[in-house]
Amino acid sequence: MHTFTRAETVEYPEQQPYLAPRYRGRIVLTQDPDGDERCVACNLCAAACPPDCIALQQGTRDDGRWYPEFFRINFSRCIMCGLCEEACPTNAIQLIPDFEMCEYDRQNMVYEKEHLMIDGPGKYHDYNFYRVAGMQIEGKDKGEALNENPPVDTKSLLP
C-alpha cells in the first residue's frame, strides 16, 4: 500500500524540512523586552539537566540584578531534552530549531554565554522577571513589582 503514498523522505541537507518554532534544538539565552539579560543565574537549568552539561556562576551587578558571570553548556553532552527551558523561571533559556551542530573538534561544542545570547526575547515577547518578582533593582523600587503596594511605613500604627 505504501507504494502509493508520497515519500516523507526529503533530500536533506539540500532540501530543508519545516521545523516548528517549538522544535527542540540547541538553546539560546534571550533578553527581556527592555533589552537586558534575562538569565538571573538561579541554577535551576543546571539542576534540571539530565547529563549535567550546564555550568554557570552567579554574580551580582551594581544595579542589584543577578546575572551569570559565565554560562557554559557542553553541547557534546546535551540531549536536547528541553528540561532546562522548562525549569527556567525567567524564560531566558529557549530551545530553537537549530540542531545542525556538526564539528570535527568536540571542543567546539562547548558554548559560552557570548555564543548563546541573542538580541531579542525569543518566543516570549513580554515577560520580564524583575517586573513580577519583588526584588528591588535599579529602576524598579520596592512596591513597583506586579501586584505590590508601596513599602509600608513601619512607624505607623494605623490599621
Binding site: 541554577n43 543546571a46 539542576a47 539537566c49 547529563p51 549535567d52 552539561c53 550546564i54 555550568a55 554557570l56 559565565f70 557554559r72 553548556i73 557542553n74 557534546s76 553532552r77 568536540r106 571542543q107 561544542m109 562547548v110 559560552e112
Partner: peptide, 14 residues
C-alpha cells in the same frame, strides 16, 4: 543533585 559535572571544566577541555 550536584550539577554541571560535564560542563564545569569544559572550557579547559571537553
Amino acid at each position: 543533585r550536584y550539577s554541571g559535572r560535564t560542563a564545569m571544566r569544559a572550557d579547559i577541555s571537553v
